Amino acid sequence: MNKISPYLWLISFLSFFLSFSCLADTKVIHVLVALCDNKYQGIAPVPAAIGNGQDPKNNLYWGAAYGFKTYFAKQKEWQVIQVNKPKDGKILEEIIYKHQNQDVYLIAQAYDGKYIDDTVNDFIDYSAGKNSLSLSVDKKQINSGGNADLVVYIGHNALMETSSWRSYLPGSWRWITLSKTQQEKQKSRYAAVFACKSQKYFTPPLSHLGINPLILTLHRMAPEAYSIYAMINSWLDGESKDEIRLKVASAYSQYQKLSQPALHIFTTEYSQ
């Protein structure tokens, strides 16, 4: 039997260790966008061209000027790695981005506006650490979904509508029990909801699941991409929650042409 040189064994071990460490240090952000939909959502109607939830190309929250896809396409630090059309008909487009300066991947999914309840359900499941999704990117596996470091929901607050509560509550977060290991892992994960009055409606499930709130909202607002971009940048820079909130509020005020940072709209805490 041939003996393996101690040096070759050491080199192999170090290579494996380093590759594992690099993977462990990779950050993943998962963004779920419920496309704006005049027909299927209880919203104040917007112009038809941007309110078609089956047309991501022109949708207010995806393809319009401040929609996620269009806005992030102009941000040089985010490189598009893949554009997919998942087999699941609920998701009309999926984009995978890689940060140019950091080991960070961002998965953004545009959900058909008709399936906004499913979008919320998936967001809550991912926030609970359920349903990890494995993607092959840059010749390595990236775990998103329930294994993402930051999960973000963008769109109409479907939980404000009675029908959405009825469709969501049965067999959902109220019955999820996390083990001690899962509870510890949740402390290092974050969730954000860019939707009207999200603190009030999303506090029950998210606080129950033990995931950290990064940004929630207190009033009606426009969930456009400049605020999400500001939050992600500040979070990746390791800034405090107060600093993140200020950056988000400042970006919102800039684009909404308000006289001062909109701190009254954003919070980093659950409601009591």
Results as ranks from 00 to 15, higher is better:
5 S>N: 15
5 S>K: 09
7 Y>E: 15
7 Y>K: 11
11 I>A: 12
12 S>V: 04
12 S>Y: 08
14 L>I: 11
16 F>Q: 13
18 L>W: 12
19 S>M: 04
19 S>I: 06
25 D>N: 15
29 I>T: 12
30 H>W: 07
34 A>N: 15
38 N>M: 03
40 Y>V: 00
40 Y>Q: 12
45 P>H: 04
51 G>F: 02
52 N>P: 10
53 G>E: 04
54 Q>I: 00
54 Q>N: 12
54 Q>Y: 08
58 N>K: 10
61 Y>Q: 06
61 Y>M: 01
62 W>Y: 11
62 W>A: 05
62 W>C: 07
63 G>A: 05
64 A>D: 15
66 Y>K: 10
67 G>I: 00
69 K>I: 00
71 Y>P: 14
71 Y>R: 08
75 Q>P: 09
76 K>W: 03
76 K>C: 01
79 Q>F: 04
81 I>D: 12
81 I>C: 06
82 Q>Y: 08
85 K>D: 10
87 K>Y: 07
91 I>N: 07
91 I>K: 10
92 L>D: 11
93 E>Y: 06
95 I>D: 08
96 I>Q: 07
98 K>Q: 15
98 K>Y: 05
101 N>L: 01
106 L>N: 12
114 K>N: 13
116 I>S: 13
121 N>D: 13
124 I>D: 13
125 D>L: 04
127 S>V: 01
129 G>S: 09
131 N>L: 03
136 S>G: 10
142 I>N: 14
145 G>F: 07
150 L>P: 15
151 V>F: 06
151 V>P: 15
158 A>F: 09
162 T>S: 14
162 T>L: 05
165 W>H: 15
167 S>N: 15
168 Y>R: 09
169 L>A: 13
170 P>Y: 05
170 P>T: 03
170 P>F: 01
170 P>W: 02
176 I>A: 03
178 L>D: 13
180 K>Y: 06
183 Q>S: 14
183 Q>N: 14
184 E>Q: 14
184 E>H: 12
189 R>F: 04
193 V>M: 03
199 Q>K: 11
204 P>R: 02
206 L>H: 08
212 N>E: 13
213 P>F: 00
214 L>Q: 07
218 L>S: 11
221 M>W: 03
226 Y>D: 01
229 Y>N: 09
229 Y>D: 09
231 M>P: 14
245 R>S: 07
248 V>K: 02
249 A>C: 04
252 Y>E: 02
255 Y>G: 05
257 K>W: 03
261 P>Y: 02
262 A>H: 08
265 I>G: 05
267 T>F: 02
268 T>C: 06
269 E>C: 01
270 Y>M: 02
